[in-house]
């Protein structure tokens, strides 16, 4: 799930696993194109963002123009055209979370990380984003880090969450490439 460190432009665009997943996906639907949105998301998960090379590759695999892929991709707010941090922290500030202190939480993340909305830490480990409702209203305030939910949060829990991911990153990087 975490982006690779290597530049997508210089590598073959998809890993063999991702390529295989795509091949299966496009065949699954009555219409190839139905695979587009999931494909973009999965590609982003692997590459980190929708680089020009990813767009071109997806367009080729589905058989539509790059323009068409961009038209679709730019519609969806989870898809991005620039890299995010390895752990993208998405703080919901929508009404239910707001009522239970989401802004304080968001500010605490800003303080701890030294970045604002859509910022990335210098080491590329974290990025921060204020997002719309993530469907955890009854357990507010809630955040997502990449796809993991953390709910019923308080600002004081922020350092612990960040440390957890730092530890995970450390553990990942000491394991050999490919085992992640």
């Amino acid at each position: 799930m975490s982006p690779k460190n290597t530049s997508p432009e210089t590598m073959s665009v998809f890993s063999p696993q991702l390529a295989a997943r795509f091949d299966a996906l496009v065949e699954k639907y009555p219409v190839r194109r139905s695979a587009l949105v999931p494909m973009l998301l999965y590609a982003q998960d692997e590459v980190g963002y929708l680089s020009d090379a990813v767009i071109a590759e997806v367009a080729r695999r589905i058989g539509i123009t790059e323009l068409d892929v961009r038209n679709v991709a730019s519609y969806y707010s989870m898809l991005r055209f620039k890299p995010a941090g390895r752990y993208n922290i998405q703080v919901c500030t929508n009404i239910a979370c707001m009522l239970r202190g989401a802004y304080d939480l968001f500010e605490r993340f800003e303080e701890e990380l030294g970045i604002g909305h859509k910022g990335i830490t210098a080491d590329g480990l974290f990025s921060l984003e204020e997002v719309e409702c993530i469907g955890a209203c009854s357990w507010a305030p809630a955040i997502q880090v990449n796809y993991d939910f953390h709910d019923e949060l308080k600002p004081d829990l922020v350092p612990g969450i960040l440390d957890g991911y730092r530890g995970q990153a450390h553990a990942d990087s000491s394991r050999p490439e490919g085992s992640r």
Partner: peptide
């Protein structure tokens, strides 16, 4: 020809040409 598209959404929607 399909050289024009629409990107982004909402008030940020914009007409775009095929070469970015």
């Amino acid at each position: 020809v399909w050289a024009l598209g629409i990107q982004n959404r909402g008030v940020n929607s914009v007409i775009v040409p095929n070469e970015i």
